[in-house]
Design a protein around this nucleic acid. Sequence first.
DNA 1: CCAATCCCTAGCTTTTTCGTAGGAATTATA
DNA 2: TATAATTCCTACGAAAAAGCTAGGGATTGG
Lengths: 149, 149
Amino acid sequence: MKLSTKGRYGLQAMVDLAVYSKDRHIALKSIAERLCMSENYLEQLMALLKKNELVSSVRGAQGGYFLAKDPADITIGEILRALEGSLAPTDCTCEDNTYHCTLDGKCVTRGVWEKIRDSINKVVDSISLKQLMEDYEKINEEASHIYYI
Amino acid sequence: MKLSTKGRYGLQAMVDLAVYSKDRHIALKSIAERLCMSENYLEQLMALLKKNELVSSVRGAQGGYFLAKDPADITIGEILRALEGSLAPTDCTCEDNTYHCTLDGKCVTRGVWEKIRDSINKVVDSISLKQLMEDYEKINEEASHIYYI
DNA sequence: CCAATCCCTAGCTTTTTCGTAGGAATTATA
DNA sequence: TATAATTCCTACGAAAAAGCTAGGGATTGG
């Protein structure tokens, strides 16, 4: 039941974007440097985020990425699902229910998986990227405050 | 963010035990047959459940497994954690926090992982094995009812 | 034109999952 | 006591998934 690096790195990158690309776009290279990630790998994560219309990009020299929407209108749930796929704990409870279980309605454990899925979604859909962005800025403000005393 | 077969098979086996070993012990072979699982693999799962004091066993011929406690006193959370380890979505938020993050207190995503972890635990710790056992019995009762009409 | 950047995808390495295999220890029963 | 049924234990192996690396193509500002 662990998130992969996709979800973890990708969410970090989204916070970084929210903080550093307020009204401009920034190069993937600079994000990768700040977060100590492989550029090539992060590129693949950005592709997922772009496909899900959470980020947009400008190609060519001086190009870069920026958020496709206001951070207040992006939930952590959208981000994580874009990167990880459904957050349901089993294939049989994924929102896009393509998987078909042979037990069908006679499975007593299914209810458990549905409750887990719903509670995870409830949590992540109740947190906006804006909140994390503000957390980040607050932490950094405090840190620099301490520094100057 | 998927459960492994350990968690899924193991929980099924626990429900099976709750239903079929009310006041006796039953052989692993019969559980494996009912659930269409590999005996050898299920054996490894039972070892995890036993280590966590959720099942007990009788060795030798006519031996078998039985629940170590009343099903009402066993939560799905105990079962899943015995099989899967911590249900936290990241290593840095596992209950036995041996893992140490370099960011320490300056990580804005950590709060998200903690909330996910807590909501999962809340759900699974609020469901008892007894409930699933009763669900199972109810479904089977209804099924046989339909059959005889 | 060219250097910087995003875009695309094939492939590689490591880790994890999901078992299989088989022998040792234990015990009811004939 | 011998035997068969069972739990216990551990090593190994195949397959899948994760976590990248690599490199070439497309686009565009300077």
